[in-house]
Design a protein around this nucleic acid. Structure first.
Lengths: 133, 133
DNA sequence: ATAAAATAGGACTAATTTAGTCGGATATAA
DNA sequence: TTATATCCGACTAAATTAGTCCTATTTTAT
């Protein structure tokens, strides 16, 4: 329920690993997947998503790979999570424009839960990659 | 991923509703399930769990039902969540004594994530039922 | 040129978790 | 003794998450 997905776990491990590399060096999905025993195809897709969001740089072709694009102390946990899993909401309705929770009296908790939501967001926006290294 | 389960949503709605009742009065699972269109059997089990953890009082038999046992400003969100879903951990390993993440170098993120974990715990321990009413 | 090694990405399957249902036991008030 | 509750285990269905397969494209080195 309040658990990170494997994808996010793998993504964090990978980003952390990439961040420890010398500047200018790249790492391949294969290398990382072998070192941490992460399924190669799965890790590949995660890295592709991180690349799409410009968190890491990707270099195609032979001798290609990935390197970090954002400074560890500027890379928020929320950026990584959102790149991999999209925006996160505590309830369905918070993610849904045509939610009628507020019109009807069926859902009395949506609005109050926004407090919890914003607290969690704050944590994930405040903590950076530096803090988990 | 970081979403509340339906059970917890239903539980929060129900506890909030029960809390609004006059002291001494009880509400039945049936009444609550009808008002909020929550599946009756599902809600029943949720209320049973809350009763087991002494969050609400249960009265069996005809004219039975439930009433609140803990004052709203003393009832933490974490209590409700834990009663319904058990203890929550951001990763598998945090819930697991014989996790070897720390012995091997396979999981480099478990320890750092404890920070995130304790921040989330803090929120859920701090917020009470009063805050969502 | 061509082969090798890498990323890119869609479609699919398997596994796990979450949501919901069913059936029966027990308790209590009228 | 009947009606109306809670209690609770076992089961099924639905949804989400995890993992796999296959093919295309890009780039470097020979």
């Amino acid at each position: 329920m309040l658990k990170l997905s494997k994808k996010v776990e793998y993504g964090l491990i990978a980003v952390k690993h990439i961040a420890l590399e010398k500047p200018g060096e790249t790492l391949t999905a294969k290398e990382i997947s072998q070192k941490y025993e992460i399924p190669y195809e799965l890790l590949s897709k995660i890295l592709q998503k991180l690349a799409k969001e410009k968190i890491i740089a990707s270099y195609q072709g032979s001798r290609g790979g990935y390197s970090l694009l954002v400074k560890p102390n500027e890379l928020k946990l929320s950026n990584i999570i959102e790149a991999i899993e999209g925006p996160q909401y505590l309830t369905e309705c918070m993610d849904n424009e045509n939610c009628d929770c507020n019109k009807t009296d069926c859902c009395t908790i949506k609005n109050p839960l926004e407090k919890v939501q914003s607290n969690i967001n704050e944590i994930l926006n405040k903590l950076t990659l530096s803090e988990i290294m």
